[in-house]
Amino acid sequence: MWPASLAGFPLGQWIADARRFYARGDMGEDRVAQLEKLGMIWSHFDVAWEDGPEPVAGYRMSDE
Rank of each mutant, 00 (worst) to 15 (best):
I15M: 03
D26C: 05
R31F: 00
S62Y: 07
D63L: 10
K37P: 08
W2M: 15
A7D: 14
G28N: 10
M61I: 15
A4T: 10
S43R: 04
Y59W: 12
S43I: 07
G58F: 11
S5H: 12
G58L: 05
A16H: 02
E29W: 02
A16E: 04
A48H: 11
S62E: 06
M61W: 11
V56E: 11
E64F: 07
D51F: 13
M27R: 04
G39W: 00
Y59M: 11
P3E: 10
P55T: 07
D30V: 07
G52H: 14
W14G: 10
P55Y: 04
G25A: 06
V32W: 00
L35H: 00
S62Q: 12
A23D: 09
R24P: 08
G58P: 11
E54R: 15
E29Q: 07
D17C: 02
R31T: 03
F21D: 10
Q34H: 06
A18Q: 04
G25V: 04
I15W: 00
L38H: 05
D17A: 06
L35V: 03
M61T: 15
D46P: 00
V56N: 09
R20S: 08
G8H: 07
Q34C: 04
Q13Y: 02
M40T: 04
I15N: 01
R31P: 01
M1I: 04
R60Y: 13
D17L: 04
F21V: 07
D17V: 05
Q13S: 12
M40E: 06
R20E: 06
P53C: 08
D30Q: 09
F45P: 00
A18G: 00
A4L: 05
Y59L: 13
P55N: 03
P55E: 02
W14A: 13
D46T: 08
V32F: 00
R60T: 15
S5R: 13
I41F: 01
P10V: 12
W49F: 15
V32T: 02
P3F: 04
R31D: 01
G39Y: 00
W14C: 08
L38K: 12
